Structure formats: C-alpha cells, structure tokens
Amino acid sequence: MLDPSRAPAVKPPGQWHHGNLRESLVQWGIALLHEVSLDQLSLRLIAKSAGVSVGAPAHHFGDKDGLFAAMAAQGFRELIALRRSYLAQLPADDLPGRMHALVRGYVEFAQANGSLFELMLGPGLRHREQYPELVEEGRASFALFCEMAQPMLPPPGQCAMPHADALQMLWSSIHGLAILRVHRRPAPVKASRSRTLDHQVGTMTQFCLAAIAGLKIA
C-alpha cells in the first residue's frame, strides 16, 4: 500500500493538464483510491500528486467533502458509461441479455473500484444533497437502470406491486451482491456452486428475471 505521506512517482494514465485543474484533481483522487483508503486520502496528498499547491484543491472544491463529491459524481458517470457499453452490444429485444448487462456492469464496476464505489453510495460523504452534480449523476445512474429494467416488468395493471417498488427491490438485490464483492464477503449460507464473478452475475440475472416473472398477476 502507498505511504499516504508520499506521492506516486508516475502519473496514472491520461492527459491531466493543469489547464483543467479541476478535472485533474478529480482524476488524481480517484486514482489514489486504488492505493490508499478513504481515511488516508487527503487534499494534501492529491495536491502533491498533481504537482500543485496545497491550496489548489480548496480553491476549486472548498474542502475535502467537495472534492470527494466531485469524485463520486465522476464515478457515477463512469458506471453509466460501462453499462451503456455492454448494453450497446445487445439488440433491444434481448431482455435477458440486457438484464445481464445491467448486473454485470454494476457488480464489475464495484469490484474494480471498491473505495470509489463506497464513496458514491456509502455513508462516508456527509450532506451529499448539498452537491448538485453528485445528486444529478446518482439519479442518472438509477434512471438508466429503470429505463432498461422497467420494460421487463408486467404492465401496471398486471403487476403485483407498483413499478417503482419493484425497480427499487431489483436494484437493491444487485447492489447487495456488489457490496459483497467489494468486501470479498461470502454469503451467510454456503453457495451451491462457484463464487466467481461470472457465476454470481449469471445467478443474480436469473434471480431478477424470476422475480420479474413472479410479479405477474395470474
């Protein structure tokens, strides 16, 4: 693990020019989360890594929460982009495939970006409602899920619960798996088969599709 008192010697990939210092600081913060914990990440470390003065982050973001909120907003944009890239490979009428893409994109992103994912959706960021960019991107991420999943639900008059409730429960199930993958925690009961990402994504997809089928009022 990186010593939080030292900046990395090599810049992460990407052209982070000081002409767009705000974006550069956001990208450095996200990159450093692969090396240090949220508790260890500081404005000083981010500024040192970016090669700017210690006061530069405060000028753009006010305080650490402001920068963390911008990092979380960028995380949502990247999560949306990943899921859209998977969805773009599938025909619109392949509903099981599209559910699989939604599940895989969400869980894969969480596992690859654990600290950022917790910043995006965990309790560590205080007063997130004060950051419009973060609120907007978080809503856009959930809206993408709803846009793709809602056509799979039975029509409102034939659905056992309101669509909004059904979508919330489907997302909650997928989010729960993502959290388990982030923390590398097994389920409290013995898994019937492999715990690989591919297997668990496939199983969660089957679960969601079965839950949707069960919502149809006979």
Rank of each mutant, 00 (worst) to 15 (best):
L2N: 13
L2P: 12
L2S: 11
D3I: 05
S5C: 11
V10P: 09
K11P: 14
P13A: 03
Q15F: 14
Q15R: 15
H18P: 01
H18F: 04
N20R: 12
S24F: 06
L25I: 00
W28Q: 02
G29D: 02
G29S: 07
I30C: 11
A31W: 12
E35L: 11
E35C: 09
E35S: 11
V36D: 06
Q40S: 10
Q40M: 08
Q40P: 08
S42D: 04
L45D: 00
S49I: 00
A50Q: 04
A50R: 05
A50H: 02
S53K: 15
S53Q: 14
V54R: 15
H60Q: 08
D63G: 09
D65N: 15
A69E: 01
A70V: 01
A72S: 00
Q74F: 01
G75I: 03
R77I: 02
L79S: 12
A81L: 08
R83H: 02
Y86T: 08
L87W: 13
A88R: 14
Q89W: 11
P91H: 09
L95N: 11
M99A: 09
M99S: 08
H100M: 01
A101M: 08
A101N: 10
L102S: 09
V103G: 03
R104C: 04
Y106W: 15
V107Y: 08
E108A: 13
E108V: 10
F109L: 05
F109P: 07
A110V: 06
A110P: 10
L116Y: 05
L116K: 08
M120S: 03
P123A: 04
P123T: 03
L125V: 00
E129I: 11
E129A: 12
Y131G: 00
Y131A: 00
P132I: 03
P132F: 01
P132D: 02
E137T: 10
L144M: 10
F145L: 07
C146D: 14
M148K: 12
A149Q: 04
A149P: 03
Q150P: 07
Q150C: 06
G157N: 06
Q158E: 10
Q158D: 06
M161A: 11
P162T: 01
H163S: 05
H163Y: 06
A164P: 12
Q168R: 15
Q168P: 10
M169W: 13
M169A: 11
L170Q: 10
L170Y: 05
S172K: 14
S172Y: 14
S173F: 13
I174F: 07
G176Q: 07
G176W: 06
G176L: 01
L177S: 02
I179M: 15
L180W: 13
R181T: 01
V182R: 11
V182D: 04
V182G: 02
H183T: 01
H183E: 07
H183W: 14
R184L: 03
A187Q: 15
A187F: 15
S194E: 08
T196I: 07
D198H: 15
D198C: 11
H199L: 08
Q200W: 09
Q200A: 00
Q200H: 09
T203D: 14
M204K: 11
T205S: 03
Q206I: 03
Q206G: 03
A210K: 08
A210T: 00
A213Y: 06
G214Y: 00
G214L: 01
L215H: 06
A218M: 10
